[in-house]
Write a protein that binds this DNA or RNA. Sequence first.
DNA 1: GCCAACGTTGGC
DNA 2: GCCAACGTTGGC
Length: 152
Amino acid sequence: MKYWLMKSEPYAYSITDLEREGVTMWDGIRNYEARNFMRDRMTPGDRALFYHSNVKPPCIVGEMEVCSEPYPDPYQFDPESKYFDESSSQSDPRWILVDLKYVRTFPHSVSRDELKEDSLLKDMVLFTRNRLSITPVTKEEYERVLELANVT
DNA sequence: GCCAACGTTGGC
DNA sequence: GCCAACGTTGGC
């Protein structure tokens, strides 16, 4: 099992939305490195931290689980969508995503500052890779986040 | 709201 | 293939 951190702006899609819906397509990723993680590295059963970005304070709010094989993001083919990509084709789709399933909302959200101040978490890829919206997390980091989140 | 970081685009 | 211009992300 592998571990990930995935960012979303909560006014676009939040952990509350995911709790209500149960499962979501992680659509709209238009960065090749983030796409490659979903396409080449994620497998069903992987765990992911849900990170609320662009809010005060930015923080990890919960946990989800990869629950599909990779497949094409349908919005790349939809001319009405902001994620439409005219240079992508059905036969050779450019943008690939996975489904994520709700696991839980943390009793305590772990803020970016708390992560930064923790000796085990201060070197997370989150901090070394500016703006990358999907980043790998080590097992040790993941378990430490659960501790800070008061998950028993 | 500002702006630094940084990925992408396109002219040459 | 270089790199300036441009657009986006996302912390502050």
